[in-house]
Design a protein around this nucleic acid. Sequence first.
DNA 1: TGATTTTAAGCATAAATTAAGCTTTCTCTC
DNA 2: GAGAGAAAGCTTAATTTATGCTTAAAATCA
Lengths: 225, 225
Amino acid sequence: MRLLIIEDEPGIAGFLKDGLEEEYFAVDVAYDGKSGLDMALINEYDLLIVDWMIPALSGIEVCRQVRKAGSTVPILFLTAKDTLEDIVFGLDAGANDYIKKPFEFEELLARIRVQLRNKNKTEDSLSAGSLTINPVTHQVFCASNEITLTPKEFALLEYLVRNKDRVCTRSRIIEHVWDIHFDSDTSVIDVYITFLRRKLEAAGCGNIIQTIRGVGYIVREPGMS
Amino acid sequence: MRLLIIEDEPGIAGFLKDGLEEEYFAVDVAYDGKSGLDMALINEYDLLIVDWMIPALSGIEVCRQVRKAGSTVPILFLTAKDTLEDIVFGLDAGANDYIKKPFEFEELLARIRVQLRNKNKTEDSLSAGSLTINPVTHQVFCASNEITLTPKEFALLEYLVRNKDRVCTRSRIIEHVWDIHFDSDTSVIDVYITFLRRKLEAAGCGNIIQTIRGVGYIVREPGMS
DNA sequence: TGATTTTAAGCATAAATTAAGCTTTCTCTC
DNA sequence: GAGAGAAAGCTTAATTTATGCTTAAAATCA
């Protein structure tokens, strides 16, 4: 499950990101409405968490634009206001639910689950060929063989499979899996690709991760053009 | 798509260049405002990425000069400042968008895409006759046969097909695909044309690349005059 | 402490480039 | 219009360079 948080206060954004990642969500953060909108339109998220009061473009405007673009992605509003009018206003703009600040993390989680309930049924697990990944239970199978992965290994494989049939560039991998935004000369990715390939090979899923030299890696669904 | 980065910090410039090249942009770098302005005025870029604080000529001044010269190329500012005043100042000078340092590469990419959105007509896949190129998955097909190309081979073929039914001169090819801007007597192009023709022939797409003696090469859409 | 993550180095191989010889095409002369 | 010579392009092999893979050791985390 991939979430986008649009929130300008770094403290809250970080707290949410950490907490949600512990729950095995893949979390991106945008710190203003403008970049948030761009990200929401370009990437496919399963849910947006949008603060009402953000710079560059208000949350409500982000919401309107997203709907205008034809997206039905669930949107959850964070708001300090709690007058009925404001809430109605937000929901009219296309939001699915709201939560008042300050809120309990548990409550947010519950509301997220409600929104994702429908999706969860169909998208409970990710797969590519005989490989199956269950982000909820944190398990990986090659056919019926369970593969034990470390957290980083899991994150990398999940990212690759989530983006299957698309090239994952080194920069994107380093950003999404390692959260590194500037270091360009590290070889961690290579090392983890080796780890993954070794474990996958041992379980019978060899050759699933292909190298695109000079660019990155790709996991292809067999039988796709 | 051809970009110019004007940025004096070699680390950031290198990181940007590498990352953007992975996304299949052709990237030039200038390390100060003066040479950046010269390059921007001499060559045709699809977008400029300009740091605010650079030696020789400030980013804002570069921006003004470019506009003064009548160019409408989209300009994206990198700035460490984020006060409303500075941003307004930059946008007034003719910039199209800005991004605060430190920024996420993904966000930069999103903003670049927004600026190029208009230019990008049908960006998903390119074709000429039975040849199909998918820049996203880095795949090339001749009908249903997949052709495996190296990065340079891919870049060259992409450039030729993107400019199909137009003659691509040797100097333009060497500029766009190899990033060489001075006259040189290299025969790399010939060699790579040979490589491409051999692979295309083997896959059943023979004769797609035609030679225009004394000028360059052309890929023609069959059935076009 | 043991597991996990990261760094660093050497190695292997793929890709890029150069250089040379060969072929084709064009031009000029007779 | 035939032939010589020049120029442009093609092809191949050799060389150089870059990239990715692997391993081991160091650092970090829990």
